[in-house]
Design a protein around this nucleic acid. Structure first.
Lengths: 196, 196
DNA sequence: CACGATACCGAATGACCGTTCGAAGTTCGA
DNA sequence: TCGAACTTCGAACGGTCATTCGGTATCGTG
């Protein structure tokens, strides 16, 4: 693996290209599966030789890690930013779910790869970072749910699991020109959780 | 691959052993991933030689198909049986979700493998059977939701997706001696869907 | 233009893995 | 107990694939 260029102009090009590789990898991995995709196939899709990939990534697994980071990091940032604001819990929940659904559908491929490779993420050694990000995001949602007013019609922990299930599952059926917009979907989930 | 024994006594032993292989395979695949598990590792867990596996299965992929069939077929049967009875839609929904959650937690490993290998199931040629089973089950649930009385507080299709997401996601967090029983979990989901 | 830094090529490598198959062991039924 | 059916073994095969690396083309810069 090459080192990141030192000169600013080149560094920019390098970063863009690297990012492009991640996005394409997410696409191909989501469609064919991580293990069933060869570096050769991925390189073909990108129009470069297989060896060229190692200019940007130390190996196949680093590529997978990059996909997951690109999925979790911005989501976590935005969620944190949102929750720092001072607003009623219900409004925050609605806003968070919107943000979350929007992120999921904008990164469908990343999300599908993330779900498919759950076993590596849970057990792998280099995966503590990704695991922690996921855990932290879940805790954010959990904390918000605890802050909701009113007696819960449903167990709070169960509501959290349900919400995680619904939203993440969205990646598997959402289509860009579908009947419902991401916002409508998100609001539907929120309404469901709040008993309408 | 050997043919199924003709003599009844032997056939019984053969079926039991084959079934044991499927269950163990589900366990190992769920933990390590299908592609990352070698036939050797699987055989080790079973205490037999790698070649011995081919006495029961034509190949690794057939094993995967067997896991999925073992998951979907009984679920579909029970659901169909339930829906043939004459009962109010709400009661049927509650019963169906109970049945479904119970099945998912009883076959957690099968379920996790099923989700991980989504891409093969969606695109593979030999997978039409499994695909059809899944589709048929979804249609059963969809039909039941349409039969619910009252104006829907949420889009019916979205409710279906949400339910699918919640229930299937259960496989990823449920633990046998957890705080909630499968029935409590199922009822929680149903309450959520019906607005409590 | 010229030079160094960067980007990519592509053949070679070494390891791994699913699958085969003939032989050996075991079990069943008569 | 004997033979046939069944089960398992385990070494060998053929193929695939991630990764390496020395060389070549391209690009930015002075």
């Amino acid at each position: 693996m090459a080192t990141r260029p030192t000169r600013p102009a080149l560094r920019e090009r390098y970063d863009r290209r690297r990012q492009g590789v991640v996005v394409e990898a997410a696409r191909v991995f989501a469609a064919r599966g991580y293990d069933q995709t060869t570096m050769q196939q991925l390189a073909d899709e990108l129009g470069i030789a297989a060896g060229g990939l190692y200019h940007y990534f130390g190996g196949k697994e680093q590529l997978l890690i990059a996909i997951c980071d690109e999925l979790m990091d911005p989501l976590l940032d935005r969620a944190q930013e949102l929750l720092e604001q001072d607003a009623p819990p219900e409004a925050q929940l609605r806003a968070l779910v919107r943000l979350w659904v929007a992120h999921v559908v904008a990164h469908r491929d990343h999300m599908l790869v993330f779900q498919q490779e759950r076993h590596v993420i849970e057990h792998g050694d280099q995966w503590r970072g990704v695991r922690d990000s996921r855990k932290r995001f879940e805790r954010l949602v959990e904390g918000l749910l605890d802050r909701l007013d009113g007696e819960p019609g449903i167990d709070r922990r169960l509501a959290l699991s349900a919400l995680l299930g619904m939203v993440n599952h969205t990646a598997q059926w959402y289509r860009p020109r579908g009947r419902l917009s991401p916002e409508q979907i998100a609001d539907g989930y929120t309404d469901l959780l709040l008993g309408r």
